[in-house]
């Protein structure tokens, strides 16, 4: 019997889209569509075992080998730098990692810049590359509040449409890096299931390309 590929899917809209692509790429799993309390869904015939996890946890599941492959945002990969292979850009869940702040913001280089963010590594790397001294304020949510209440000068956060920023008189000031979903693989699993993981990557890449072609 062929070993199953364990796939960690991110809960939410992005995960549903990724599942649709995987299923159309030859990895269907009828059990995952049955409502219930099961946590793991498998289809021996197509050789896959799916499970839903919190999007920010996908990289941990894959790095630690609980999943052979997974789908995760580039933001998580940049922030936590897991030791995994990043096999494919799925061109889904596209957004930008930005520096945002009040529309009237002017950076005063004589002062330490106060940066509120959920992504301290990304913010630190970005400003270190510019030799700018910063004070990181690590927050876990409602980042946009920080500059409005004077907790920080700017924020480093994910911007999708910019609507939340605009509603709060904030603006995306600089783009740090574009973000999208990536197919990642555990390095050890890749050694022992090389052909199966590569075949999955190729099939998904083909589907993604077809989808992009349709959207043009």
């Amino acid at each position: 019997m062929q070993p199953m590929i364990n796939v960690a899917l991110p809960k939410g809209r992005l995960g549903e889209k990724v599942l649709a692509i995987l299923e159309s790429a030859g990895y269907p799993c009828p059990a995952i569509h049955d409502p219930g309390r099961r946590l793991i869904f498998e289809n021996e015939e197509s050789g896959v075992r799916y499970f839903w996890v919190k999007p920010s946890d996908v990289a941990i599941y894959v790095e630690r080998g609980a999943a052979d492959v997974g789908v995760v945002g580039k933001d998580i990969l940049l922030e936590y730098q897991p030791d995994v292979y990043e096999l494919l850009d799925l061109h889904m869940g596209k957004c930008r990692m930005c520096v945002a702040g009040p529309k009237t913001f002017r950076d005063d280089p004589e002062k330490t810049l106060r940066v509120a963010t959920k992504f301290p590594h990304i913010a630190r790397d970005y400003y270190a590359g510019r030799s700018r001294e910063i004070d990181i304020i690590k927050l876990n949510g409602s980042i946009e509040l920080a500059p409005i209440l004077g907790l920080s000068d700017v924020i480093v956060d994910i911007v999708e449409t910019g609507a939340t920023l605009r509603e709060n008189d904030l603006d995306a000031l600089e783009t740090i890096v574009p973000i999208s979903a990536r197919l990642i693989a555990n390095k050890s699993s890749y050694q022992f299931q090389t052909e199966a993981i590569r075949a999955m990557g190729d099939a998904v890449a083909q589907r993604v390309a077809q989808r992009e072609e349709k959207e043009k």
């Binding site: 790095e63 630690r64 609980a66 555990n186 390095k187 050890s188 699993s189 050694q191």
Partner: peptide, 9 residues
């Protein structure tokens, strides 16, 4: 080097 069952090198 990798061995099957260990998640990292």
């Amino acid at each position: 080097g990798y061995v099957d069952g260990a998640p990292a090198r």
